[in-house]
Amino acid sequence: MSPPPPLPDDATLVAALRAGDDAAFVRVVRAYDATLRRLARGYVGEALVDEVVQDTWIGVLRGLATFEARAAFRTWVCRILINRARTLAVRSARMVPMSSLGPEGAGDGGDAAGEGDRDAPAAGPPAPWSEEDPARLAAHQELLAFVEQALTELPERQRLVVTLRDLHDWSAEDVCNALDLTESNQRVLLHRGRLRVRAMLEQHLAASRVP
């Protein structure tokens, strides 16, 4: 699938949406709908994803008139999604994954001070994988599905940072703005999230050889 064309700058985009430009809204949907659905899946089961994303689009449209561009448009949309998803997850008493339960951010590494922080010690030297070539690994749909599932098992803030940085190519600055993180916290969360996914891949690739 070819990526959707880049959106115009925020001022142009928001002006078009405020003017009722259907085509501009379709472009926004094509650019962000998959991101919103993926983020929602980290909070609620698949059955409620549509509801969270629908609520988010309604929130975006109702908020357009008062959007003040203090943040980038996409970080504003993302914050609406996270607020809606958290609310619905609590209401349905069904936080998914279970690792998200507990005080926000507990144990995810995001409160670490930065340079002086130490990650949890590795279990030992990394075991070899049956395949370590990135291009060959990425060519396996089954492995992509495994990684998508692995993401849902990360603590909330690690999952959000890895999803936005590594899957959706957001800048560190936009992620910090969307999630109210300092640069050093964002860096620690990204690193710890990647390490956890690597560890899950290690187990997976030890158990099933990628052809």
């Binding site: 990135p134 690994l137 492995l143 959706h168 990647r194």
Partner: peptide, 28 residues
């Protein structure tokens, strides 16, 4: 090995969204 595997992890993460289906005409 750790660095190689972490690079591979980031590369695989970067490909996950390529498998996203496009927004359906009905949804649009």
């Amino acid at each position: 090995r750790l660095m190689r595997q972490l690079r591979a992890t980031v590369a695989v993460l970067g490909r996950v969204k390529d498998a996203d289906p496009p927004v359906s005409p009905e949804r649009e």
